[in-house]
Design a protein around this nucleic acid. Structure first.
Lengths: 121, 121
DNA sequence: GGGGATGGTTTCCATGAGGAAACTATAGAA
DNA sequence: TTCTATAGTTTCCTCATGGAAACCATCCCC
């Protein structure tokens, strides 16, 4: 077993860029939408409340460029475009799912902590 | 077991805000720095390459407000300030660690995918 | 009273991420 | 030829994030 020559604590390390991509505003939600299989653009858009088409396209293109999502165009009428997690993308599913689950299950506690903090002088 | 009334796919749900806080630029790195125990401001700053004091303060304050980190001031000379993960914060450690480990171990693959994507017309 | 150490704060600024709204492309159906 | 549907693109704009640099507060020591 070699050690991995990547370290997120190093500002020059590419893994830090990768980490930030993972944590961007829409990526975890796209993964959540695609977790059960291929999904069309308009379906992903509907799954994720509040995302505009421009930003969704940007997000999907970036994920495609990074090899996490694949894009398939079907020459039907009207055209059908399916987005699917690649094997690499699926390997990220479990970590992201853990973070998402944590956020949902602890959101209430955090809201309470904020109120307590803001109430204190 | 009740179902959790929070859903990151709902744009009005507070859990989405929580998810985005977790995924912000410096939060995962602060967690990485604090994972083994209390740490001073200057130590955290040194651990995380490239963070400015202003931004580090902002990040730590936010984490403190959210109940994830506690701040202890010791009236020594010079003053000593220690930041520690709270139990709530420690419960987030495993999910964040999984994401960080994924980023480090797959960074090389992603860089390759990008080159391949950019090389294609 | 000057210096050094820690832990910040303050000001100012540039960049870019993201959003709103309108528009485009394709192609069959009516 | 107009309509519909999907899947975007384009333009413009705003706002927040983050960074650089300088400054501040405390307290002891010399």
């Amino acid at each position: 077993m070699e050690t991995i020559p990547f370290d997120v604590m190093d500002p020059a390390c590419p893994s830090r860029v990768v980490l930030q991509r993972i944590g961007d505003k829409w990526t975890p939600l796209v993964f959540q939408s695609l977790k059960d299989g291929p999904r069309r653009f308009s379906e992903v858009r509907a799954d994720i409340g509040g995302v505009t088409p421009k930003v969704l396209t940007q997000t999907l293109r970036t994920l495609e460029r990074d090899g996490l999502v694949s894009r398939a165009v079907f020459a039907e009428v009207p055209v059908r475009v399916e987005y699917t997690l690649t094997p690499l993308g699926r390997s990220l599913l479990a970590p992201l799912e853990a973070v998402r689950a944590w956020a949902e299950s602890h959101a209430a506690t955090i809201l309470e902590a904020r109120e307590a903090f803001d109430a204190a002088d």
